[in-house]
Design a protein around this nucleic acid. Structure first.
Lengths: 260, 260
DNA sequence: TGGGATTTGTTCGTATGTATT
DNA sequence: GAATACATACGAACAAATCCC
């Protein structure tokens, strides 16, 4: 087991290692509960749930101390998060929580659209009664969360799509959907207004209905419409203020002076 | 470039970190030419071009010596390749070149289909004359390569799709397409028969034609058909033998005995 | 079964590069 | 603009696990 012999500064610095994170049993193949993965997962949650806010610096040392691991493992986790777009990693300047621009957000939404189309076209008419029940229950959760904070609504909305992806049984599709939906969550957390995700619940219901009756085309159309709506609500609403910021950015940072 | 004998504790222990890697200074801005990236790129090419064959073991030490870097960098590169599915990484057992099963290959093809649909629907009617010329030239290259080895044809066919993705300007889409097309290249290298990619050239031509006239639906349809054809040519041909192997696998390894 | 050789997992020191005063 | 302080990039060494007789 984990040896406690490393008592380097063990007085008040109890390493609070997350105990073998409770991996859901849905995945039977690989058990990626290594220590890096634990660090990765912790940081992932902290970012997606906005405990670590966009733009925030992520020093290897501090994180390592906090989590009771060395910089090496933190580094590894950070570089993976960087690949996934949740962390920005500048050479020799370290890591910080990603702060996607509107353009990057638009890109992610565009890709997500195609991926989610694939998901629903694979699922239409092929969901078991139990799977449909799970989806119905999830939407009810979403509905119940509408009164409470927007953060939880955003999280649940993302999880709906991840659940759909899981039901395809396609591991790669799951990974991609998880990735784009995490990034979208980040985007929504930055840009969206409170209550902007309210209508999403009924849209989810419509999608389930189309999947239930097996209308793949309709499901794809609804999904596309849903995502466009989410993107619009998120990115279009604060557009005015953002455009001003974008216009000013080059002057503020001097980057507009380059001839290219 | 097979493994030289590893006399690591030998006299020649001189660390050859003389030269800052030969990266040219062409790009001054975002220089992704870090040393890890160099290792990553080298391994990536070696795998995709089949210098390192599927299933081959990838010991950190040997690779590090060969490339003149320490294990740390090799590890980082390997874990990135593992995320992308080109390398398999088993805990405490090290890395080896991925050897995708038919099922994994099918999954990748399915996801790829959706991504490529997105690509062509973004590009239809929006390509400049110069871009179209680039595509035409590429297809001519493909045609010229038909006589020579199948490996080059496979590589060129993959690059066609990567070029298309680049033209969307969507960085995430580029990354995903690069990833799935690399993995497909691996799959084709394993499973496809010689000359199985011949008809692909004319399919590429048809896609370009649809993009030129701006028929997004037709382009999407052609792309889907094209990918299905590639998948079929690759995965269906050797199906019989593979199914036998798959049927026997549980008995051979005893994994089928688990209740889950 | 066991023990030595080999390989991986992890820590941590040092050099290098970046920000700050 | 130089000196200082600090964070990162990299590598060597140690510890643990696995492989191979």
């Amino acid at each position: 087991m984990s040896s406690m012999k490393l008592h380097k500064t063990s007085d008040a610095k109890r390493p609070r290692l997350k105990q073998r994170s409770v991996e859901v049993a849905t995945e039977k193949e690989t058990a990626p509960a290594s220590r890096v993965h634990s660090v990765y997962r912790t940081l992932w949650r902290a970012i997606v749930e906005q405990a670590l806010q966009p733009g925030m610096k992520l020093p290897e040392d501090t994180i390592g101390e906090q989590l009771g691991v060395s910089r090496t493992l933190v580094r590894e986790a950070l570089s993976r998060l960087a690949i996934e777009g949740l962390v920005e990693l500048k050479p020799n300047r370290g890591a910080s929580v990603a702060h996607p621009t509107i353009e990057e957000a638009r890109e992610v939404f565009d890709v997500r659209c195609g991926l989610e189309r694939t998901v629903v076209s694979m699922l239409a008419g092929r969901l078991s009664a139990q799977q449909l029940k799970i989806l119905d229950a999830h939407v009810q959760l979403e509905e119940a969360a509408q009164g409470r904070g927007g953060a939880e609504s955003i999280r649940l909305a993302g999880e709906f799509h991840v659940k759909l992806a899981e039901m395809t049984g396609n591991a790669l599709l799951q990974r991609y959907i998880l990735e784009v939906s995490s990034r979208c969550t980040l985007v929504l957390a930055i840009y969206s207004r409170p209550h902007s995700s309210e209508c999403a619940v009924s849209e989810h219901r419509q999608i389930i209905a189309a999947l239930r009756v097996g209308d793949a085309n309709e499901a794809a159309r609804l999904m596309e419409h849903h995502l466009q709506a989410v993107a619009t609500r998120a990115l279009l609403a604060p557009r005015a203020s953002k455009e001003i910021a974008d216009l000013l950015a080059p002057y503020a940072e001097g980057e507009g002076l380059r001839p290219w």
